[in-house]
């Protein structure tokens, strides 16, 4: 699938060499002018050189260039928390896709979600449960969709959290089973809101998503999420 809409992957070697060459030329030209404007030109080569070496723009430049809650910035490269989990189900692919595409179903197996509400313009409003009863909300849009194959989404500017993700659906085991693979990225803002966001998926986000996918499987295969209600005497489950 094409993920370029959601995340800026690290730049290619060609681009990096180009940036380095450009920086060298700019620096050489600026210095050779032996003037104040020349020094300015030489200084301008620095961010370009950084991009050539490190593979991305310095953060300070980015913050000048773009808003920080754009998923393409906040989640670029290895930034943010990244989770990849997959599960296999003994249900027809189309059924699982349709279940997931009805975003309102997601809270049925994603324990951290309180609600997902779709509006007619293709956007959706997500409400998640944070620690101590606090809530985290964000607006999202579907940015990539191929029926029975993939759904990709990202949060919109102005949200509490910057997040993007995709879910892929594929037939496995000779077409007898379906595999659902989830890729999720999110970046928590600094400060109080960030702490709440971090609490939503707990200290081990991969485990949280794995449990979510387990519940998806339980709901679609078994029709219910198993419950034990053990230690009923102590009542301390």
């Amino acid at each position: 699938m094409d993920t370029s809409d959601m995340t800026l992957v690290p730049v290619s070697d060609v681009e990096r060499w180009g940036a380095l060459t450009g920086a060298a030329l700019l620096f050489a030209y600026g210095v050779s002018r032996r003037s104040v404007p020349g020094v300015c030109v030489a200084t301008m080569a620095m961010p370009l050189a950084y991009r050539g070496v490190v593979g991305r723009w310095p953060t300070s430049v980015l913050s000048l260039l773009r808003a920080g809650d754009d998923t393409r910035v906040a989640l670029a490269g290895d930034r943010g928390v990244q989770v990849f989990e997959a599960v296999r189900l003994e249900r027809p692919l189309g059924e699982i896709y349709a279940f997931w595409r009805t975003l309102g179903n997601l809270p049925r197996f994603m324990s951290h979600l309180e609600s997902v509400t779709e509006s007619s313009d293709g956007r959706s409003r997500w409400v998640a449960k944070g620690p101590a009863g606090l809530r985290v909300e964000w607006q999202a849009e579907i940015i990539h969709e191929v029926p029975n194959q993939v759904i990709g989404w990202r949060s919109l500017p102005g949200s509490d959290v910057v997040t993007a993700g995709s879910v892929n659906f594929g037939r496995v085991r000779g077409g007898r089973s379906t595999q659902v693979s989830v890729r999720l990225q999110y970046a928590a803002p600094a400060g109080h809101v960030g702490a709440v966001v971090a609490g939503v998926l707990g200290h081990d986000p991969a485990q949280t998503i794995r449990e979510d996918l387990r519940r998806l499987k339980q709901v679609l295969e078994g029709g219910e999420v198993p419950r034990a209600d053990a230690t009923i005497r102590g009542g301390t489950r």
């Binding site: 003994e90 794995r210 449990e211 387990r214 339980q218 295969e221 078994g222 198993p226």
Partner: peptide, 24 residues
Amino acid sequence: ACGHCYFCKEEMWSLCDNSNPNAW
């Protein structure tokens, strides 16, 4: 056993995927 997962379908009932709430 749930009766519908891969293991139940393959008659490996005691390996059911969906019946242990504390699978982790």
